[in-house]
C-alpha cells in the first residue's frame, strides 16, 4: 500500500516537473534513447560484418565436400568432419613427408619471433636516440625515417634481391673466398635488415617509440646524471621499465605483421618453408595433392578450393586472434598514445 502511494506521488512529481521545464528532460531522454538504439544497431551491424567472415569460415571448414554443394546448407555443416584440416596441414607442409605436422607453421613462428625481437630491440635504441639526444644532422636522419615509411619496399626489392644474390661488403668476401656470398637461401639477410631497422614497417615503430620517449620529462634524466648514473644505466634502469608497454606493442605489431607478411617472406625466405608463402601458393598445390595417388590429374572444384583456402586462412589467424584477445590493451593504447602527438 505504502509503496503504491510513493510511486503514485513520484509519478505526479515527475509529471509536474515535466510540465514545469516544458518537457525538456523528457525530450532529451527520448533523444538519448533513440541515439543509443541507432548507435547500437550501427555498431552491431559493422561488428557483425567484421566477425562474420571468421564465423562462416569456421562453419565451412567443418563441412564435408558434399555439404559444400548442398544449397540448403549455409553456415552449419550437416556432416561434421575434421578431414579438411588434415588436408590443409599436408598441403602447407608439402615438402617434408617425415614431419608432416605444420612444418611451415613452426618456421613462421620462430622467424616471426626472432625478427620481432630484433626489430623491437633496434627500434627501441634508435627511437630513444632520436628522442633524448641532440646531435648534428638529427633532422636529416629523422627525415630518412619518414622517407623509409613512405618508400614502398617494392621499389628497392629488385636491387636488394640482386644485392643478396651476390652479397659483399666492400669486397671482403671476394677477397677471402674468391667470390661473393649468395645469401638468398638463408635467413641472414632479413635478420640483418631487422637488426638495422630496415625490416617490415620499422619506420613506424621508430616513430612510435620516439614519440613515447619524447614524453618523458628531461628532469628524470638530469637527476639520474647528477646521481652518477651512466648512459646505459639510465636507459636500462630508468627509461626501459616504463617503456615496456610501448615496446611490447611494437613487438606485437611486428610479430603479427611478420606472421602474415608475404612480400619479404617471398623475397628473402626462399630456402625455408613459410606458412604465408605456402598459403599463397596453395591453389597450385591442390591439383597435385589430390592426384598424387592416381596418375590422373584431378580438377578441384572451385568451392572445394575456396574451402581449403579458407581453412588455411583460419589456421593462420587463430593464433593471432588468441594473441590479440590477451594483449588487446597493449595494441590499442600505444597506437593511441603515439597518435595523439602526431
Amino acid at each position: 500500500m505504502k509503496t503504491k502511494d510513493t510511486s503514485r506521488a513520484n509519478k505526479a512529481e515527475h509529471l509536474s516537473r515535466t510540465r514545469r521545464n516544458s518537457g525538456y528532460v523528457l525530450k532529451s531522454r527520448i533523444r538519448k534513447g533513440t541515439v543509443s538504439v541507432l548507435r547500437a544497431l550501427l555498431l552491431f551491424g559493422l561488428c557483425f560484418m567484421i566477425i562474420q567472415p571468421i564465423i562462416s569460415r569456421i562453419g565451412v571448414s567443418l563441412m564435408t565436400e558434399s555439404d559444400l554443394y548442398d544449397s540448403t546448407i549455409v553456415l552449419l555443416p550437416r556432416h561434421v568432419t575434421l578431414e579438411n584440416y588434415k588436408i590443409v596441414f599436408d598441403l602447407t607442409s608439402f615438402l617434408r613427408k617425415d614431419f608432416p605436422f605444420l612444418d611451415s607453421m613452426l618456421n613462421t613462428l620462430w622467424v616471426s619471433l626472432v625478427v620481432s625481437v630484433l626489430q623491437a630491440l633496434s627500434c627501441t635504441l634508435v627511437g630513444y636516440g632520436f628522442a633524448r639526444y641532440s646531435f648534428p644532422l638529427k633532422k636529416f636522419w629523422f627525415g630518412c625515417v619518414v622517407a623509409m615509411i613512405i618508400i614502398p619496399p617494392q621499389t628497392i626489392s629488385t636491387a636488394l634481391y640482386a644485392n643478396f644474390n651476390a652479397f659483399d661488403i666492400f669486397g671482403i668476401f671476394t677477397a677471402l673466398t674468391g667470390k661473393p656470398l649468395n645469401l638468398l637461401k638463408s635467413t641472414i639477410p632479413y635478420m640483418l635488415m631487422s637488426l638495422t631497422c630496415m625490416g617490415l614497417k620499422d619506420g613506424l615503430y621508430i616513430y612510435m617509440l620516439r614519440t613515447y620517449f619524447q614524453g618523458i620529462p628531461k628532469s628524470v634524466e638530469e637527476a639520474a646524471f647528477v646521481d652518477g648514473c651512466s648512459t646505459m644505466h639510465t636507459l636500462v634502469r630508468i627509461m626501459l621499465p616504463d617503456a615496456v608497454p610501448t615496446i611490447m606493442s611494437c613487438f606485437l605489431f611486428s610479430f603479427v605483421w611478420q606472421w602474415t607478411d608475404l612480400f619479404y617472406t617471398r623475397n628473402f625466405f626462399k630456402g625455408i618453408n613459410m606458412y604465408s608463402t605456402k598459403l599463397s601458393t596453395m591453389y597450385s598445390q591442390m591439383a597435385r595433392y589430390f592426384s598424387k595417388d592416381a596418375n590422373v590429374s584431378v580438377v578441384v572444384s572451385q568451392a572445394r578450393e575456396q574451402q581449403l583456402i579458407n581453412i588455411g586462412v583460419l589456421i593462420c589467424i587463430i593464433p593471432l586472434i588468441i594473441l590479440y584477445v590477451f594483449t588487446q590493451k597493449t595494441f590499442v593504447q600505444s597506437i593511441a598514445m603515439s597518435g595523439s602527438k602526431e
Binding site: 635504441l125 634508435v126 636522419w141 628497392i156 644485392n163 630496415m198
Partner: peptide, 21 residues
C-alpha cells in the same frame, strides 16, 4: 652517444636503402 644509439639505423639505411635505391 646519440649518434651511437641511432647507428643501427644509419648503417641499415645506407646499406639496405640508399645503395638499393
Amino acid at each position: 652517444t646519440g649518434v651511437l644509439f641511432i647507428l643501427p639505423f644509419i648503417i641499415g639505411f645506407c646499406l639496405f636503402m640508399v645503395v638499393p635505391l
